[in-house]
Amino acid sequence: MTDPLIPVDAYLVESLPEIWFGAVLFALGMYVVLDGFDFGIGMLYATRSDEHERETFLSAFGPVWDANEVWVVAFGTMLLAAFPRVYSRLLADNYLLALGFVVALVFRGLGPELREQRDDVRWKRYADYAFVGGSAFAPLLLGMLAGRWLFGPATLPVVLTGVGLVAVSIVTGAAFLAAKTEPELASELRAYGVGATLAYLGGVVVLLATVVLTDAGGAADAVLSLPVAAVVALSVAFGLGGSVLARRGQYRAWLASALALPTLLTLLVAVLLYPTVYPPTGLLVRDAVVSPLALNLVTVLGFPVLLLVLWYFKFLYGVFSGPIENEGYGG
């Protein structure tokens, strides 16, 4: 073969398909964590009527959202590269949900862009509708898509997964803003964040109970397992612990524990999926994965770049760390 550096007939390491399963879920997790707080900012934005506060929110959102959003492309293309059959079936089976999600992202992205262009109250109001509406529908539809991925066409669990992602996005959005803004605004945000935390934890319990009771998508057994119990227990611990930190005004610590929630949610998805990659079809990781050469190639070329990307994010958040400056970071 042309490139002897890359093995053709065997995976670089025996467990490479499983590692890629993890990598795909990692990209999803990055997306849910990072764009999640963008969605939260967008939804909490609806609670502000003061122009100054709204601009503060947009200044926190401005420099990072676009980069955050790219993680969903990374997730989709990594899924395609490693598990093309799952990518194609998941999206084809959930046509309207998937396209509804991307349309919500269009509205969310354009809203703030439009808002700047005109000093006209009505114009700004419509731009705000786009921003808030997109920020609420995107996590709802993405969560529902994740629900369909896990449970197939079972309405209640699917809707609950969507609502769960909305709630967790509000938690991280509130914590992110609280950590970057003045104390008065932060304490108002705290109320929303704590409320959303409790709603989220309750939602997860109801969701899992529903799945067990109705055996949605045949996932009852998977839910009644030690890893799921551990993830739920950790979620409760981080959720409640974070709420306590928030009440004490330790917002940076609250942010850290709030970010654990979407991370654990993604972990829950991973635990419920494995060893299949699309439970309703029964496709196993090993059945759906591409051949050794293709996977080895994306590993050798892709992983170093993935590390580099993580470094970019460290750099980006370093540049824009600290309190929000209202004039849009002096740009």
């Binding site: 492309v73 293309t77 395609l80 059959r85 990518y87 190639l297």
Partner: peptide
């Protein structure tokens, strides 16, 4: 699905 092994890599590299 047919072209996944051929197009998935380049598309993922594009993103990353």
């Amino acid at each position: 699905e047919v072209a996944g092994e051929l197009i998935g890599g380049p598309l993922a590299f594009e993103a990353k």
